[in-house]
Simulated scan of single mutants.
Amino acid sequence: MATKDLSQYDIESVPSAENMRFGIVVAEWNFEITSALANGAVNTLKKHGATDENIRVKYVPGTFELPLGAQYFAEMENVDAIILLGCVIQGETRHFDYICDGVTQGTIDLNLKYNKPFIFGVLTTNDEQQAKDRAGGKHGNKGDEAAVTAIKMVHLKQNFSD
């Protein structure tokens, strides 16, 4: 099965992020991967008009802590969308399943509770090479995709209030 390039998208289909505010929560676990995701997200937000002042980045110890870090953003910062960036690599135990299930459900719950976009930018891969391939490697950068999704979701919400 082929994986699309996560960094390829129709640039003209992305609204301006000039007046949008973003929080990005990054897991420190697998930091080589997650820092590349964060760089991709920040660069993509800026490419579409977001300013340094409107992008806040915070770190949590691991992927499981992403939903709580994102909740802190929703409660303590004036942001329009929160991007969660992490990386879980399959191991020999079911730990992978529990972490992935927890962060996925946590993200869903936050979207509904706060009525604002919480973007799931978590890699769930079989091995480290697959993660590298999706964090700026041959399959692009999931951080880029998460940033574009955040911009589009904020724009969608803003258009409902028109």
Score class of each variant (00 low, 15 high):
L37N: 01
A38H: 08
V154P: 06
N19P: 07
V88G: 09
M1I: 10
T51F: 11
D80C: 00
S16Q: 10
S7F: 03
E128D: 10
R21P: 04
Q129G: 11
A41C: 02
N126E: 15
D127N: 15
N141V: 00
T124G: 07
N115S: 13
N39F: 08
G23S: 03
F73Y: 01
L66I: 14
R21V: 05
H155N: 15
N159F: 08
E65H: 09
Q105C: 11
G140V: 06
V60I: 14
S161D: 14
I82H: 05
E18S: 12
E92I: 12
D80M: 03
E28K: 14
D133G: 04
W29E: 07
A150D: 02
V122Y: 03
I83M: 02
T34D: 02
F96P: 06
I89K: 08
V88I: 15
K116E: 02
S16G: 08
W29S: 08
I108T: 13
G23A: 06
Q8Y: 15
L37V: 08
Q105T: 14
N54T: 02
F120H: 12
F73Q: 04
G49E: 09
D5S: 10
M76V: 10
E92F: 09
G121F: 03
L84T: 13
E145A: 10
D162K: 14
P117Y: 01
K138N: 12
D109R: 13
L37R: 04
A147K: 03
V79F: 00
F31Q: 15
K116F: 09
K138M: 09
H48G: 10
G140H: 05
I33H: 08
N43Y: 09
T149N: 11
